[in-house]
Design a protein around this nucleic acid. Structure first.
Lengths: 239, 239
DNA sequence: CGCCGTGTTGACCAGTTTCAAGATTGGTGG
DNA sequence: CCACCAATCTTGAAACTGGTCAACACGGCG
């Protein structure tokens, strides 16, 4: 079964495709197809949990693709507050901003394996190959659209809605077989910092969801089983 | 005095350039320089306050540049909640997302005059002219970086910090002579929906700022005089 | 003059945070 | 394999920020 098929079958008829903040599985599959040129530029790197991959303000020498694990993209305030703008999951790209400096910090949310591509070469690739260029603008456009959805979440949704949306997003992005059992490759604190909440609030909401049988934690803290339909009611968000 | 000069002189020595969500005045000035090709594609349109320019989900036929007034880019939830992701001020662009559908709604925040450029032609321009293409990817990158700053604001800043940051951002973006007197081309409700607050909270914070002499309203509600330095203390935000 | 849209202020309330105390989990070394 | 420790997660109670509801003020315009 191709990734693209997994993607379409995961969408129940009538289910709305959420405009989340990374390219959909379908888009990723398409990228896969003609990414050979990029592949041979990359080198494989490993980072362990909480290692910094690059920092805000650094010169942007590389862009990355996650092979396994997860990266968090975040900004740190002087007093320790932190906001995560995005989780980068296996198959996803990050960087590629075509700015001289990184505008956010990238840290390993779990042990992670990435491919690193030299920024220079990527830009060259874009110059030479129109298809790559189109992909890049589309990628950036998609990410911007995703960020706007995230803004709605932080600006106008309640804690319960945010957590529900978050879980649905993960289920949507992870190519799980059935899509209801999802691994959370990030800590509660990471989730809180993504959702603009405290870790305690995230815990409480998850406990509520557990009590109302909308989620279950079979083993540890890091695997969730979702009742998609009932979570969708809570998420409410979309237009 | 060129726009670029205005920009650099507005930055006091040591003042940090805020990574806000639209291209800086300097960037805009540079765009100006070689935008002749684009210019003759555009047609001038007028919208009056609260008119919809385009809606989320519509086919993206045009991109826009604001000549005068302001546009708000926003998303509406089913129950009436609204989040504004960006204000588009004179000289700024919007659209250009290279996606088939608009991912947000654009409405006139005040009476507004815009230039509308056919999306098709723009893409063609990008194909033909490498410099335009680079400008586009840089534009999108810059917008994405700006959205991330906005995320920090909504996720991790207090009401006071948000309002202070907002006023500083406006002062930074508007090419005012001295930069301390700023016109607010949007309503209190618009500001609230940009900041993820209620209109009452925005009013209260503004009143506080007025009492503590950090802002003043000479005439109406729609012109503010700022004490940049003391507001910067409140904004706190940046890394 | 009086209405309507918009902005301001006050009193009260609710959701979220804060602070603090445990409970679980995972890892390490005996 | 188990004991122990540190890190992470969970839960509770109290405090607080910002939201809600309601009244009022102000300015623009017919």
């Amino acid at each position: 079964m191709s990734v693209a098929e997994t993607y379409t079958s995961a969408k129940a008829p009538g289910a709305k495709v959420l405009p989340w903040n990374l390219p959909s599985s379908a888009a990723r599959a398409a990228v896969e197809a003609d990414l050979e040129a990029l592949k041979r530029l990359g080198m494989k790197l490993r980072f362990s949990r909480n290692e910094t991959i690059f920092s805000e303000g650094e010169e942007a020498k590389y862009s990355y693709r996650v092979v396994s694990g997860a990266i968090r993209l975040c900004k740190h305030l002087a007093d320790g507050r932190r906001q995560i703008s995005e989780f980068v999951l296996p198959g996803d790209f990050c960087g590629f901003l075509h700015l001289d400096e990184h505008r956010f910090t990238a840290e390993a949310a779990s042990d992670v394996v990435v491919m690193a591509y030299p920024q220079r070469q990527i830009e060259k690739l874009g110059d030479d190959m129109p298809c790559m260029r189109k992909r890049l603008t589309r990628f950036l456009s998609e990410r911007l659209a995703g960020a706007q959805t995230h803004l709605v979440m932080l600006g106008r949704q309640t804690a319960k809605e945010r957590v529900a949306s978050f879980l649905l997003m993960l289920a949507d992005r992870v190519d799980g077989e059935d899509g209801t059992s999802v691994e959370l490759p990030m800590s509660r604190q990471d989730i809180a910092d993504y959702l603009g909440l405290t870790i305690e609030t995230v815990c409480r909401v998850l406990s509520d969801l557990k009590r109302s049988r909308r989620v279950a934690f079979p083993d540890l803290h890091h695997v969730v089983v979702l009742d998609i339909e009932s979570l969708r009611d809570l998420a409410e968000a979309d237009e």
